[in-house]
Lab assay of single mutants.
Amino acid sequence: SAVVMEEGSPGEVPVLVEPPGLEDVEAALGMDRRTDAYSRSSSVSSQEEKSLHAEELVGRGIPIERVVSSEGGRPSVDLSFQPSQPLSKSSSSPELQTLQDILGDPGDKADVGRLSPEVKARSQSGTLDGESAAWSASGEDSRGQPEGPLPSSSPRSPSGLRPRGYTISDSAPSRRGKRVERDALKSRATASNAEKVPGINPSFVFLQLYHSPFFGDESNKPILLPNESQSFERSVQLLDQIPSYDTHKIAVLYVGEGQSNSELAILSNEHGSYRYTEFLTGLGRLIELKDCQPDKVYLGGLDVCGEDGQFTYCWHDDIMQAVFHIATLMPTKDVDKHRCDKKRHLGNDFVSIVYNDSGEDFKLGTIKGQFNFVHVIVTPLDYECNLVSLQCRKDMEGLVDTSVAKIVSDRNLPFVARQMALHANMASQVHHSRSNPTDIYPSKWIARLRHIKRLRQRICEEAAYSNPSLPLVHPPSHSKAPAQTPAEPTPGYEVGQRKRLISSVEDFTEFV
């Protein structure tokens, strides 16, 4: 048969007729292969192709491409040299491709048809291009793949890379869960390890502090508590009631339409708007009261037996805890006409967050109470924005700035309102402590230090009264110190430094 060459192609190359033996071998191979691939376009007849790359030819070592076609129900084999250009295909004639002069020997084609199974398996396991790669995943090629499931790999992101949580363990979102698992493993320790309690022994800490320079003076030496005195035992138990972190309780009120001037209507609300609910979820963490331990979680007086509701929101960081007394989460009882059960919590909070959804101005004093010092007013606006402002009593104007209003988005509203309420509550605590000038409020841990110092002074006084020969370590507060001759004046800087060093040991009130 003659071949018409394309323009620009090399000279004529004689194409030899395939021997009958080659056709029989390739026909047997075509019957084993699956003929249901995917359909081509209507211009080209339905056909199945599979590209198999052999590394070497037997005796020649030339890479070839073998295409199996099922045109007219008769499979045909096409061998081509890759750099050459194939002729145009037609549905009426068999596929013809040019070969190099080196394939002119018909014996070479017979060798190609009689490829060993080793070469076929190696060509099938190679990388296939384009559409033949999808075909190689079918059941027909499963014989050339190794048996057994593939090893499982770690989760992959859409980009093909490992997620960040699997790369950096410290930033993994499941870090707290692993800590819980470690605690569970520790709890399952053997009885021999049960006595080993991690941490620092208080006796060891005391020993280090006792021999430090801070205890060089007799006034700073630790003293032993009497065991037989019940009054001192009660004082030590009272110390446990003062937490070592700051605590805040903040009221949250929802004002519906037409309720801006009605205290009873505001306290009777059992739910609010959708934006109000989203605002609550951002204030803190939802907790169930019956599962809380009052000595570990500050509840601000809420009952854990269901008297004040089942849930509330709280927030904490390293040095403070805040609980929100939310009116809509507290039960509304029919027998309580004046809502006294709610007001006994909300009316005693220094700061209230008022979500004013009424469309009218909310005035300070609508919720009557002796300790309502500051109101954080949240007014929802259009386009997911809110107006946040402050209202306070006249005696609080020096501590709280009420002249600045803020426009905040719904997303950042819980954070801004919480921070403003916490700052206002700190100012309210300082303002409330002014009624007792001898006990200015600095912080909870300073209050613990003052309680310890008062307890020490009482013990020293009782020891001096029981044994008059012992001198008083600290003179009583009601006694007057003996007159001392004025010492020589020293520079102001040295006096300030000495006073600062003494105050650092005794108390921190002056620095606050």
Score class of each variant (00 low, 15 high):
218 E>P: 06
470 L>Q: 15
378 V>E: 00
245 Y>T: 06
478 H>I: 14
268 S>K: 09
281 T>G: 13
498 R>L: 07
374 V>R: 00
255 V>H: 01
333 K>L: 14
362 F>R: 01
343 K>G: 06
249 K>T: 14
431 H>R: 11
370 Q>L: 14
234 R>I: 06
439 D>T: 11
219 S>N: 14
228 E>L: 07
277 T>H: 12
235 S>A: 15
252 V>D: 00
408 V>R: 01
404 V>F: 11
271 H>K: 05
419 Q>H: 07
475 P>K: 12
321 Q>F: 10
510 E>G: 14
282 G>R: 04
394 K>Q: 11
357 D>E: 07
337 K>D: 15
440 I>E: 07
258 G>V: 02
268 S>G: 08
243 P>Y: 06
502 I>K: 13
266 I>W: 03
426 M>C: 03
305 C>N: 13
288 E>N: 10
424 A>I: 02
468 P>R: 10
485 T>N: 13
327 A>L: 04
231 S>E: 14
242 I>W: 06
261 N>H: 07
479 S>L: 08
225 L>Y: 10
454 R>W: 12
320 M>H: 12
481 A>M: 09
270 E>M: 06
264 L>G: 09
288 E>F: 09
347 G>Q: 15
472 L>C: 15
496 G>T: 11
399 L>T: 05
288 E>I: 06
494 E>Q: 12
482 P>V: 12
397 E>R: 05
218 E>V: 09
239 L>H: 08
262 S>C: 11
460 C>Y: 10
406 K>A: 15
357 D>R: 00
348 N>P: 05
502 I>L: 10
383 Y>P: 03
232 F>E: 08
325 H>V: 06
245 Y>M: 09
343 K>T: 13
361 D>T: 08
411 R>A: 12
415 F>Q: 04
459 I>K: 06
399 L>H: 10
395 D>I: 05
368 K>F: 09
237 Q>F: 08
510 E>P: 15
428 S>P: 01
426 M>K: 01
342 K>P: 06
477 S>R: 11
421 A>E: 00
343 K>M: 15
218 E>C: 10
398 G>M: 09
403 S>Y: 04
309 G>S: 14
501 L>N: 15
373 F>Q: 13
372 N>Y: 04
313 Y>I: 15
442 P>M: 06
445 W>Q: 13
289 L>R: 15
404 V>D: 10
358 S>E: 01
417 A>T: 11
448 R>V: 06
473 V>C: 11
398 G>P: 14
396 M>N: 01
396 M>E: 02
278 E>Y: 04
449 L>A: 11
259 Q>M: 02
223 I>V: 12
302 L>Y: 14
485 T>F: 10
241 Q>L: 07
453 K>N: 15
463 A>W: 09
424 A>D: 01
291 D>P: 09
268 S>V: 02
422 L>C: 05
356 N>W: 00
454 R>K: 14
414 P>H: 01
